[in-house]
């Protein structure tokens, strides 16, 4: 009886953990409602696998416990599916997410299934232990509370740094030197058409992202990270352009010495404060993180420049 109670409670807690982590945010993914069904079903399977592991061990059914290993293969598949879906949609995006962002999103989806499974495992252990000393309802209550706390802690730990944590983001002046579009002293691109130049000067906003230390400088140099910033900024504020107007595609270009990134953009809503906030809140992609200062060579290079 304890075993069944523990499996059911743990599966449900794991399922609700997955539901809690499944928030539709500005990335508009997973899309409601088909995406929800897919991920909740997988979350339920993950939770069930986590929930049966300990009860199976207790009745010495080692074969059943090894199914947990099988789950890992299943969820690697999730990452692959997410990556393929997003990559297939990529050519249809006005401002693409970029491979770095797609990989990051795919990883999050895989990881969340493990979190759901882990929560279920933890809950089942709590329920089984408590049921040794107290009545079943108390054990269930303890398991639910324990699982909820674990999800809350794990989910909090999964939130990574944002661009605003690594860099100082501020508005900057847009100007032209001949045909060259510049944001302060960083060249963005060569704009040939006079009409496009006038429009960029009139309606464009310049943004400068200045990294705080050598670690941030190396991280922000990553092309995937830059594309992620552009995608987030344009998906939040819109962009005044259409297919076949390459003059107005926002680009992030890097200052070769300082590593500062500059962007000139004609947002759908002209609001500098909102644009800067959108840039600051762009997540730092796991795959773009570099830490040269963690090495001896990096620290030496930081101390002295010939």
């Amino acid at each position: 009886m304890e075993a069944i109670t523990s499996v059911v409670t743990a599966s449900l807690v794991g399922f609700f953990a997955r539901l809690y982590m499944l928030r539709t945010d500005y990335r508009q993914y997973p899309s409601y409602p088909q995406g929800y069904v897919i991920h909740l079903s997988l979350g339920l399977i993950a939770s069930f696998l986590g929930a049966v592991a300990v009860p199976a061990l207790l009745v010495k059914d080692y074969a059943a416990a090894t199914f947990l290993a099988l789950a890992a293969t299943q969820f690697r598949e999730v990452r692959k599916t997410e990556r393929e879906t997003l990559s297939n949609l990529e050519p249809m995006e006005l401002i693409p997410r970029g491979n770095g962002y797609i990989e990051g999103i795919a990883r999050v989806f895989e990881a969340r299934n493990y979190l759901a499974g882990g929560t279920a495992l933890f809950t089942s252990i709590v329920v089984l232990i408590l049921s040794q000393y107290w009545s079943l309802p108390i054990a269930i209550f303890g398991g639910v509370v324990g699982g909820a706390i674990l999800v809350w802690l794990l989910d909090g730990m999964m939130i990574g740094p944002k661009v605003g944590d690594l860099a100082n983001v501020r508005g900057a002046e847009i100007r032209f030197t001949g045909p060259l579009l510049m944001v302060e002293d960083i060249v963005i691109m060569n704009v040939g058409l006079e009409t496009a130049r006038q429009r960029l000067l009139k309606e464009g906003i310049g943004v400068l992202i200045e990294p705080r230390d050598p670690n941030s400088k190396a991280t922000l140099a990553n092309l995937g990270q830059r594309q992620a910033i552009l995608h987030d900024a344009t998906s939040l504020l819109g962009v005044e352009m259409d297919v076949g107007e390459p003059e107005y595609i926002p680009l992030l270009r890097r200052h070769p010495v300082t590593g500062a990134l500059a962007m000139a953009i004609i947002p759908g809503e002209k609001n500098t404060v909102a644009l800067l906030e959108a840039v600051r809140r762009t997540p730092i992609l796991e795959a773009s993180v570099r830490k040269p200062l963690a090495s001896q060579a990096g620290r030496l290079a930081d101390r002295h420049r010939e």
């Binding site: 001949g178 045909p179 691109m189 060569n190 704009v191 040939g192 058409l193 006079e194 009409t195 496009a196 297919v243 076949g244 107007e245 390459p246 003059e247």
Partner: peptide
Amino acid sequence: KERVAQYLSRITRGMVHDLGNGVYIIVRH
């Protein structure tokens, strides 16, 4: 030159670049 460059750019989905010597080129990136 401006007008032709703009039309060509929209038709070919290329970008107009000014070489500074009076020549405009359309480049697809």
